[in-house]
Write a protein that binds this DNA or RNA. Structure first.
Lengths: 322, 322
DNA sequence: CTGTTAGCGCGTTCAT
DNA sequence: ATGAACGCGCTAACAG
């Protein structure tokens, strides 16, 4: 910029004004400055220097606790991302996907991200990456959970929703099962009976399991007999494999519509009310991940925390009436 | 940082080393520095200042020419994004989605983005946002097209691929049709017969139309009689609506698997070999958007331009043998 | 192992 | 309408 100023025969400040407050500079001077810039290949103020001076980056950081693969494999995560991106675009903020998933540098990378606030995709209480966001003293909004001091949590009441759909899909059956998301960040695939929700690391998964258990108990089903098939990702194929390992089962509550597909044409419920749910007449929990994404961005950038949980509702379809 | 240095009774450089080269500082000093930082609520080096000093941001910019909605609605765009994100995560780069789609500030926002290089999602030659990326003199990689001086283009030979699949789906039929992506950034929905590919603004769409025309001509079909249904997005529902506006048709070449679904159970070809293509036995063009995303990121960050077009191949399935 | 010097490029402040 | 001085927070290079 100094060079441009010299070339145009003005002070650096005039160049700065030319870019930031064009009206404050006479048309002639501005033309001369722009010509000089063109000649020198100067493309405008340097973003980093500007951020430094300005004290803000105008970027929102998205932290995906684990490997990106899992996030982009989940269609609902993409919808959430779209919600974030929409608000960012409206407000002129960049959406920075922080590079994580490659080991113990993750926390450093989070700290080194040039952002004004973080949105964290559902993770566990002990995720070092989550701790890193908090240590920066920048606003942190967590989607789904965990809910930690100094952070805002946005999401639905998963336990209540799981109870509602559980009451529907488990009604009148005797040998129900659950298709679950991973319990912790190790993402192992296995089947366990009578799983204690309290031992689950992911709050979202924990709450949903607790809700299914609530429903089972209310219906007089002994939770300790209910097998839970844990899948690494929200993948129909994997769910199919897991289902084959289950004993005889007469109803399945699944934590996503994708997983639920594997149990068709049996008695089954899904989660999210995605396109496939409507297509296959799946009883499911409707929630708007897009709206939640937008809410996360708004909260992170705007400051005012939401006063209540996001809304959800049960959608009854044919898949739980057989 | 100066404050922390004073508090710890060391020079600022020692604080810097404490964070950047921990081994270079004695354990005792480091502990004192970290204690001082803790006391003062200092969370580590400021990313913007670091970028300024370092001369690089370690961010890759993704520019979606038009409104984000369209990009996230397209499942293939998401796969592309995953490819980008994977390389970014590996190399410790942030992936910054540049906020565009809200009008004429777009170009300024692109210029103001703190990134070391840009990847541009398919757009038109005259997109001002594309011009903005080029004006910054930072590396620009365009996916799909257009191919402009000073930028690198990554993608497949769409014309050749369209010709190949066209020869397959149009073979032996008399009244073929095309289901196309939008022709320009206005994204209008309509049907036109004998569309001249040269008038199409999106290079990818242009090339594919030209390829379908090549195939039609080689099969003795008069292109000027072939109706092209133009859809705003890659949406099955919209395609279904458009199809109802077409005259009697005995084969459909679609520019995506999603669009192709609307023409089932007729004679039809898709594009991308996504999961639905396999599911519905769709003849299609296989290409790896994920690999192309990775290639874009590698090229943008690494510098060396690829020497040839990405690979594709025709997958023949039942949808074109009836 | 630690300190000193210097400057990355910008924009706010105050002066002209 | 334009200019001069200063500092945002950091780190490379070199010195000790």
């Amino acid at each position: 910029m100094t060079d441009v100023a010299r070339e145009a025969g003005v002070s650096p400040m005039t160049v700065s004004y030319t870019y930031n407050r064009p009206q404050r500079v006479s048309a002639e001077t501005r033309a001369r400055v722009l010509a000089a810039a063109e000649a020198l290949g100067y493309a405008g103020p340097d973003p980093s220097a500007r951020s430094l001076r300005y004290g803000a980056t105008r970027n929102l950081g998205l932290v995906l606790g684990e490997h990106l693969t899992y996030a982009f494999d989940d269609p609902q995560a993409v919808v959430f991302l779209a919600g974030l991106a929409e608000v960012c675009a409206e407000r002129g903020y960049g959406l920075l996907i922080v590079p994580t998933g490659t080991g113990d540098e993750d926390a450093d990378r989070v700290r080194a991200a040039a952002v004004d606030a973080y949105v964290v995709w559902t993770t566990t209480e002990d995720d070092p990456v989550l701790a890193a966001t908090r240590s920066t003293r920048r606003p942190v909004v967590v989607h789904g959970g965990p809910e930690l001091p100094g952070t805002t949590m946005i999401g639905i009441d998963n336990r209540a929703a799981a109870r509602a759909v559980g009451l529907e899909v488990f009604a009148g059956v005797r040998k129900p099962a659950v298709l679950s998301f991973p319990l912790d960040r190790n993402r192992e695939t296995f089947v366990r009976t009578g799983l204690d929700p309290e031992t689950v690391a992911f709050p979202v998964t924990r709450d949903r399991l607790a809700g299914y258990r609530d429903a089972a108990r209310e219906l007089g089903i002994d939770w300790s007999t209910v097998p839970v098939g844990v899948c690494r990702t929200s993948d129909e194929g994997e769910a199919r494999t897991i289902l084959r390992q289950l004993p005889d089962v007469d109803a399945v509550a699944a934590m996503s519509d994708q997983l639920a597909l594997a149990a068709l044409p049996g008695r089954v419920s899904g989660w999210d009310d995605s396109a496939v749910a409507a297509e296959h007449d799946l009883t499911t929990i409707a929630q708007s991940l897009r709206a939640q994404g937008a809410a996360c961005a708004t909260t992170a950038l705007g400051g005012d925390a939401p006063t209540h949980r996001d809304s959800w509702h049960l959608i009854r379809r044919a898949s739980t009436s057989r």
